[in-house]
Structure formats: C-alpha cells, structure tokens
C-alpha cells in the first residue's frame, strides 16, 4: 500500500507544553482513499489532521503528502515559510468554523487562493471559482458576503475555496460540528460527492453514520494513540477494542446518511 499511498505519516509526535497529544502516530492514506478519524475530544485527532498540512509543527516523526516529505525532531531544520506555503497549497483544508474571509464576497473568497498563491490571471480564477461554487450548489451566491449565508452554505463555500487550489488531498476538521443539525446533510453530501470523484481525504468527524458510509478506513484515537484501525464498516459494526466500543456506544449506528436537505 505504501507504494501507492498519497499520505504517509510515521512516528508522529507532538506535545503542547507537558501535554503529549500525539504519541508516535503512523498512518497511510491510499490514493483516492477516504480515512475517517474519530475519537473523543482531546484524543489528538484534530492535531493529527493539522500536522498533515503542517499548520501544527510536529516535534518528531515524518509527514509525506504526494512526493513531498518533511522530517521533524532533534537536529532537523524546520522548513522555511516559502517551502511550507508551497506544500500547503496542494493540501486543501476545511475548518470547523469555516474561517471564510468576511471582507470578501463568496466569489472573492474562492478566487483568493488561485489569484494570490497560484498567481492565476483574474478572469481565469473567476471562471474556476464560479465552477467550484456551482459544484457545491452555490453559483447564485457568488456576489454575496459570507455574513449573509447560512452555516451550511458557508461551509460549502469553504469547501469550494479549498477545491479552487486543485489540491491533491482534502482535510476536513470537524466540518459539520458547528452546524445546526438540519444543515449537516448538505455539507456531507458535498463531501460524499468528492469521495465518489476519487479525492483523497482525511475526515475528522463525529458523524459516525457518515464515516461508515463514506470512509473506507476508520481510525479511532484516544489519548494521542491509535486505538483501533481498519475498514470503516468493520470497525464501526464490530469494534474489537473496549475503548472503541465504549465510544461508539454513544452513537446510533444505523448506517444511514443524515437527510440531505439542500443537496447540491
């Protein structure tokens, strides 16, 4: 699998002060694979996700996405800002709180990456941005400001913004956790569509039913270690570890997707 893997993480360690949040984590994501990271809050899953695009700098171990590998630890020099920026340009990230740019319209939000980072000509970037907005079902909201959109719409714009960079992988950091329940479906539908198109994705989520449906692999983390890992359905339907079972017992395991109210 490691020949074809898109993301490869080896022995990743991270501490915040004396709190060790990641204790030697290894992880592979196959090309076009979808990995769901689940676990109680404080388990380190968001930190792990943020280490993949180096928004958080690991203390040790290595991270490879595509052909770019970074090693961390004693004696290794931290990558400089330009190298980091170039690396992050090829990994899209979607945040729990959307983090849209409030001073720009949705169209400008989606154009920002291509124009500023990829130095794309404005007309080309606009065409690309409009196509991405159409893809998430928000073409008609192009000239509105984020403040006028619902949470679900904001998150779909955020997905379009990340996609406009035409990334190799997409990282979702609890993308539906800040949404009203009735708005979750529309965002999950977009993520599912991406999965079916063969996007490599790592999804930190609390939507167990969704993870079962969309992810091909599932990783359960607790206290900074991977407790259980395997095919998503197998782990959810038949967890082997006590901790996994205890965690999953908090969720209804119906396997059904939440209804997509406003599917794009």
């Amino acid at each position: 699998m490691s020949d074809t893997s898109k993301i490869e993480i080896r022995g990743l360690r991270k501490s915040f002060g004396s709190n060790e949040v990641l204790k030697s984590i290894s992880l592979d994501v196959a090309k076009a694979g979808v990995v769901a990271l689940i676990g109680p809050s404080g388990s380190g899953k968001s930190t792990l996700l943020r280490c993949i695009n180096l928004l958080v700098t690991p203390d040790g171990g290595s991270v490879r996405v595509g052909d770019t590998r970074f090693s961390f630890g004693e004696g290794t020099k931290l990558p400089d800002v330009t190298t980091l920026a170039r690396f992050r340009a090829s990994t899209g990230m979607v945040f729990q709180h959307f983090n849209l740019f409030p001073h720009m319209t949705t169209l400008q939000n989606v154009m920002e990456g291509p124009v500023t980072v990829r130095r794309m000509a404005k007309p080309d970037a606009e065409k690309l941005a409009r196509a991405q907005l159409a893809k998430v079902g928000l073409a008609e909201k192009a000239d509105q400001y984020p403040a006028t959109l619902s949470g679900g719409q904001k998150q779909r714009v955020a997905i379009a913004r990340a996609l406009a960079m035409e990334p190799d992988v997409m990282l979702f950091d609890e993308a539906t956790s800040a949404l009203d329940p009735e708005l979750v479906g529309e965002v999950l539908a977009v993520i599912q569509q991406l999965a079916s198109e063969g996007m490599t994705m790592v999804i930190v989520t609390h939507e167990i039913a969704f993870a079962r449906e969309v992810a091909d692999r599932l990783i359960f983390m607790r206290d900074g270690v991977v407790v259980e890992e395997g095919p998503a359905r197998q782990v959810i339907d038949n967890p082997q570890e006590v901790a996994t079972r205890a965690f999953l017992s908090h969720f209804h395991r119906t396997g059904a997707l939440p209804p997509a109210n406003a599917a794009p």
């Binding site: 695009n53 800002v81 980091l84 992050r88 340009a89 990230m93 983090n99 740019f101 001073h103 913004r161």
Partner: peptide
C-alpha cells in the same frame, strides 16, 4: 482578528506576509 483567518490563509498556501496583507490587515484596519 481571529486566528482562524490567518490559518485559513496558510491552509490555502499563503506565506505569512501574503496572509497579513490580503486577509488580516484589511480586516484589522477597519
């Protein structure tokens, strides 16, 4: 300005300077 703003800029591949100029300062100046 919320840290999430510069993080979103960084996640798009902006250098700290670009994110300051394009994302943070326009909001901060207001």
């Amino acid at each position: 300005i919320d840290r999430g703003q510069s993080e979103a800029g960084a996640a798009l591949g902006m250098t700290p300077g670009q994110s300051m100029r394009r994302i943070v300062l326009p909001q901060a100046i207001k």
